[in-house]
Design a binder for these strands. Structure first.
Length: 415
RNA sequence: CGGGGUAUCGUAUAGUGGUAGUAUGCUUGCUUUGGGAGCAUGUGGUCUAGGUUCGAUUCCUAGUACCCCGACCA
């Protein structure tokens, strides 16, 4: 797209925002803060958000997930049955009432509605296992929102729920999700920093597992085994003071961001909500459940926290809003225009800085801030040499000159 | 939820019991063009409600919003 038509603008003076993630995202025009802990996604931000969603969706589909979308307004009844409607159980509820005084809740999670839904759709062992997921808005009345997109009161979460015939089948799928999550975080560009972490399993199992990205901005404290690339959350360090994998005891304390969570649920929800299936022997049984969450917005913030530099954002390839940022500097207008059209025709995803009254310095500074991985500069100089200038945001924009006739091939190989 | 702080153009910030300033942005004009270019020009602001006072953006009270520390956080 042409940058001259992009309605958001960058700000020269960084806004006073909480957390480097929100500061850079606001400064570069990706998001807008509505109020504490509530952010809107603008065109650039939505492009990134959707790419993150796309990666998660691919990985969830690859392990047999079926996407659906439940409502945000929730009936109180199932929650009363499981004993979770009370503010004592879940204190971050946003609740409201219909005109006729009926109580409803704004979704903060979906175990109850999902379990309840399946009562209408499964009845035989042949219907299981079932893996259903959604990207859905959660509302959580956090006492204290903070750190930009890291802890917000309204956010989209990918939540997958698994329903298995028995514990063995559940355990097998649980391991597949672990793998899928590793794939997701490495595709998001934060795989090296993100560790499988043992955490509290609540009342239904010994452990749950979190995916913790090591980062000072994080709110969690974890203890890392450097050899196994595995960690233990502080909340269970008394119970599990050694590496669960190799039993080493010299674990390193680190701050980390919880970018994903997987949780065995057992049959608690099925039991309390009356979800059963008939097994091969004709007996009614409760499916064994699990829940698996990732917040794309928090993931976006984590990417920035881990990968930014002094000049701005440095997007990894797979999540960048555009693959290429084409800058037209003085004397490069017609070359840039031609190259832009050529790349568009090849279906290449490109942001073209065609602004005619913007100085070269400003364009370069904006490009650094926005953080698109591959940059092309076209100017009088490249025109005279019949080249294009190419550089990588992640490599400090070290410049390389490619002959104009080789440009398309080069870009297709490097995008 | 406990404790603390802040509130001034779109953004970032000074300052004052008596006409509110700077930078940046934005308008217009001229000159510029490889790391946020120059000159000129115009535009735009004291959170809300009370109180004290001749006079409050400034002091006081309350409200609201925002931020920080802690607690909390499937």
């Amino acid at each position: 797209m042409k940058q001259s038509t992009l309605f958001t603008k960058t700000q020269k003076t960084p806004p006073k925002e909480d957390g480097i993630n929100a500061q850079l995202l606001v400064q570069a025009g990706f998001i807008h803060k509505e109020m504490a802990g509530v952010y809107s996604f603008l065109p650039l931000g939505l492009l990134v958000f959707n790419r993150i969603v796309g990666i998660i969706r691919e990985e969830m589909n690859a392990i047999g997930g079926q996407e659906l979308e439940l409502a945000s307004l929730q009936d109180a009844e199932p929650w009363k049955k499981t004993g979770r409607w009370s503010d004592k159980e879940i204190d971050i509820w946003f609740k409201t009432k219909l005109k006729n005084e009926t109580e409803v809740g704004l979704a903060n999670t979906h175990e109850e509605p999902m379990t309840n839904l399946l009562r209408h759709h499964i009845s035989s062992w042949r219907d299981l296992p079932l893996y259903i997921y959604q990207f859905q808005t959660k509302f959580r009345n956090e006492l204290r929102a903070r750190n930009g997109l890291l802890r917000t009161r309204e956010f989209v979460m990918k939540d997958l729920y698994s329903f298995s015939k028995n514990k063995e089948e559940h355990d097998q799928f649980y391991e597949k999700v672990k793998e899928a999550y590793h794939n997701i975080f490495s595709r998001l560009g934060i795989g090296d920093s993100t560790l499988l972490t043992f955490a509290s399993g609540g009342s239904f199992s010994e452990y749950s597992h979190e995916f913790q990205a090591i980062c000072e901005a994080g709110e969690d404290t974890i203890y890392v085994c450097d050899e196994c690339h595995i960690a233990v959350n502080k909340e269970i360090i008394e119970k599990q003071s050694t590496c669960p994998e190799c039993s080493k005891s010299n674990l390193n304390e680190k701050r980390a961001i919880e970018v994903g969570n997987i949780f065995p649920l057992g049959t608690r929800f099925a039991d309390t909500l009356g979800l059963t299936f008939t097994d091969e022997n004709g007996e009614a049984k409760a499916p064994v459940m699990g829940s698996y969450g990732i917040g794309p917005g928090r993931a976006m913030a984590t990417i920035i926290e881990l990968l930014h530099d002094k000049k701005g954002i440095v997007w990894p390839k797979e999540v960048a809003p555009f693959g290429i940022h084409l800058l037209s500097l003085m004397g490069g207008e017609s070359d840039a225009e031609n190259l832009y059209k050529e790349l568009l025709n090849k279906g290449i995803d490109i942001l073209y800085d065609d602004r005619s009254e913007t100085s070269a310095g400003e364009k370069l500074a904006d490009a650094d801030l926005i953080g698109i991985p591959l940059r092309i500069v076209v100017s009088a100089k490249t025109h005279n040499e019949d080249t294009i200038e190419v550089s990588m945001r992640a490599k400090e924009n070290e410049q390389e000159y490619i002959k104009r006739k080789d440009a398309l091939k080069f870009l297709q190989e490097n995008i």
